[in-house]
């Protein structure tokens, strides 16, 4: 079976290295980029199975990347796991923030610092959701 490709977008090299190492160990194929621009370039070449996205990225925020993904029919269905320090403490706060940013809610979010097991569990869940979602989409299109 092909390794699932996961794109990490985070400006902190240490965070990228940490996530890359965890994902590699778990048998995925991670790629890390530090900017929104590089993230979009990477996705133009190859659509990943999942994006792990930080919000606070220099030059252009992670929210901007997320917005562009949701506006692009090719990328709109790619699940996004937000991994960020700005994630608020409660779900309701998070929803308020999402409303403020005026974007559709992301598939999942995790607060830094992450726990390895929890991170992997979320990644696995999001990837399986994507797999199970496919036939449904095909059906509706057909």
């Amino acid at each position: 079976m092909m390794k699932a490709k996961i794109l990490i977008v985070d400006d902190e090299p240490d965070v990228s290295l940490y996530l890359t190492t965890i994902l590699k160990q778990a048998g995925y194929a991670p790629t890390a980029v530090a900017t929104v621009k590089a993230g979009l370039a990477a996705m133009a070449e190859d659509i990943p199975a999942l994006v792990c996205l930080d919000i606070m990225i220099p030059k252009e925020s992670g929210i901007s990347l997320y917005r562009q993904m949701k506006a692009d029919p090719r990328l709109a269905k790619v699940p996004v796991l937000i991994v960020s320090g700005v994630v608020p403490s409660s779900d309701s706060d998070f929803n308020t923030l999402i409303a403020e940013w005026d974007v559709p809610p992301p598939d999942d979010y995790l607060e830094k610092p992450i726990k390895v097991d929890e991170f992997l569990a979320r990644v696995k869940a999001l990837l399986s959701r994507r797999v199970s979602a496919r036939p449904l989409r095909n059906k509706s299109h057909g």
Partner: peptide, 10 residues
């Protein structure tokens, strides 16, 4: 949190 992430990662 960011620093802790680095420490955890290390």
């Amino acid at each position: 949190k960011n620093i802790l992430m680095g420490v955890e990662g290390g």
